[in-house]
Write a protein that binds this DNA or RNA. Structure first.
Lengths: 202, 202
DNA sequence: GTCTATAATCCGATAGAC
DNA sequence: GTCTATCGGATTATAGAC
């Protein structure tokens, strides 16, 4: 989310507000906060967006396009499906580790209780990625219901980051658990062989 | 979170506010909202709690004790560790399916950026459960670093619920994916054998 | 496109009566 | 323990000048 260069004011508002919404959520950020971050007055925001809700919606869409777009290409293409799934996990993990704010934004979005907003987000940003991942998972595990597998893969990658803030205060914590390479390795091991076969690194 | 009977006003405030915080988050709920739900004036809340932050903290602790307390017993005890882990997954899944609000509350808590609140929550509610689960995972997968495994198990169970709201709008959705029994079966299969070995149900 | 100024409402929290 | 009444400030959003 640290994108310091913008082509116009509208995009600058989107980029900076996405970062704010990611850290404090929709209700935790005021139009004043956003205006101050951009360096304008609150009134200026209403020239570009009809209201706070629309601004937030556009900001989320902007962030998803920016961060998830590059990952889509990895899922298509040819080659050994296990290798492609593995490289997706590695890249996805790396992106999440780098873009902490974006990871938080996903978590906020999933808590949204507005059906219409969820619908448009599903259509605009989740569906393509989801379909590609579903197809790939179908290749490595034919004959299964793909849906639970896709959710499991995404969850296995995301959850270490989602729980990072509280893991730090729990016994047994090691800095290594935050290393994206270690996380990816663990997830791949678990996908291939289950708990008993995941990579052994005491 | 639908606990319609309370022994005193303080507990009634805790139970009802936990439900409100779960649906709209800390910043999305006002003291006026809570007071209205309880059926008192906002001023009355300040007799029981010093401020909004403390009320929320106590409400989260109350909800965790109420919902997670019964699960702790499953983790200790003797018997085949795989069986105990499996029964924990089944019960945990069942609880999450039943207590949608509580599942949301966990997600809100993990987004909290206040270090002190996270610290006290880790101490008061997460640590015991985490330790017990870590010990159990150590029995089924000796020689591994337990931490990533524990996170993976919890993530595999929780993530289908966390993504439920958006899954409904994605292709391939089936009502069956929300069935706690199917989720638990899938998680157990994945823990035992990885993606290729998880239960086959097309 | 951005500003100043402001309307109308909502917020957390407190004082003091009962 | 709970109420009424209210303070001081923050909130979203708009009107109109430049």
């Amino acid at each position: 989310m640290a994108k310091p260069v913008f082509t116009n004011t509208r995009e600058e508002i989107l980029g900076l507000s996405a970062s704010l919404f990611a850290t404090r959520g929709f209700d935790g950020v005021s139009m004043r906060d956003i205006a101050a971050a951009v360096g304008v007055t609150p009134a200026a925001l209403y020239y570009h967006f009809s209201d706070k809700t629309q601004l937030c919606l556009d900001a989320v869409g902007y962030a998803f396009e920016e961060k998830m777009g590059p990952l889509k290409a990895l899922l298509d293409g040819a080659g050994n499906p296990w290798d492609r799934l593995e490289s997706f996990v590695v890249q996805f993990t790396r992106m999440l580790a780098k873009e902490e704010n974006f990871r938080r934004l996903i978590q906020w979005v999933l808590l949204d209780s507005d059906e219409q907003r969820l619908q448009s987000l599903a259509d605009q940003v989740f569906r393509d990625l989801f379909n590609a991942l579903r197809h790939l998972v179908g290749e490595v595990a034919p004959g299964h219901d793909h849906q639970p597998h896709v959710i499991s893969v995404i969850g296995l990658v995301i959850y270490p980051f989602e729980t990072r803030s509280v893991q730090r205060f729990l016994p047994g914590y090691q800095q290594q658990h935050e290393d994206p390479k270690a996380i990816a390795r663990h997830v791949v091991g678990l996908m291939r062989n289950g708990l008993g076969g995941a990579n052994k690194e005491k």
